[in-house]
Simulated assay, not measured.
Amino acid sequence: MDPRITALLRCFNVPPGQGDPPSTLVIAAHPDDETIGVGGMFPRLDGALTVLHVTDGAPRHRRQWGRQEYATWDDYARQRLHEVECALRVAGVDPSVCRRMEVMDSEVSLNMVPVTRRLMEILDDLRPEVVITHPYEGGHTDHDATAFAVRAACTLLARDGAPAPAITEFTSYHNEGGDKVVNRFLPFDGAPETEVVLAAEEKDMKRRMYDCFYTQGGVLRDMPVRVERFRPAPRYDFTQAPHAGRLRYERYPLGIRGKHWRALAADAMELLELNRRW
């Protein structure tokens, strides 16, 4: 395992304030993904944490909004930002650690090349030692496209001889076996998992962080707070489905089908001159 990831996981297994965390950039597709995946560890990363959202959480189609009382797309986007700032404050983190790329929610898959190139610039500017981000699991097209872009950006930086962070993954959700599975990874050989059991006060904090996401109550009620799981990012083949059967995002009436998503990934790989596995 990369020693930078080892140092990160060591900090996750000692009380807050007793570790020496590596500089860490959490790259999340949407406001709330960072809280679901790694929110319980934020106090341990205080002073070493930056959070980047690829989207602002406001889809183009109004019926995809978590609440309908907002008059405009801008109003809904501002609410999503307010929610994540609230959650960071609950964790004792200054909201100024947040950055946003402001890609349209649910459209990251249509922008994998520009998102990758922008991430290269951000990573080259911030120089984090570790990135924590989504796995490739077919749960949400934006999650998978963010996983793609992070790995592509790091691969291209390393190929250019520039410093590249070690990539760690947090859990989200997927559809293995036909049912929604939350807070667990799809199995992947050679990617050992670390499970961090949250203390009582950390579980309470994470529940209060969830409470900040007024528009996302329907999603977050399924998300447990007892443990958080992490693993080094494996080498994916983004031209293959992450698992057999129907992907989670194929259950929704709007959006991209799995075959289309993989064709977009293959096109992006060709434009970025990437091999099949990286």
Rank of each mutant, 00 (worst) to 15 (best):
M112E: 07
R89F: 00
P95Y: 09
V84R: 02
D142C: 06
D105C: 02
D142A: 10
F185L: 11
R151V: 02
P165F: 09
G177I: 08
A200I: 03
D160L: 13
V84K: 01
T133S: 15
P135D: 15
F170C: 10
E83H: 03
S109E: 13
M120A: 05
A149I: 10
V130F: 02
L88W: 04
A200W: 01
P128E: 01
V97S: 07
G138R: 06
I122Q: 09
H82K: 13
E202V: 12
V115H: 01
S96V: 14
D125R: 08
K180R: 14
A153C: 04
D94E: 05
V108S: 06
R78G: 08
A153G: 08
M120L: 02
M101V: 01
T116R: 00
G190I: 06
G161H: 06
E102P: 00
S172T: 15
P163H: 04
A153H: 08
R184V: 06
Y136Q: 07
A199Y: 08
R100L: 12
T168N: 11
D124L: 05
V130W: 01
M104A: 13
A158V: 05
D179T: 15
M120W: 02
R78W: 04
A152S: 15
L88F: 07
E201K: 05
P128M: 00
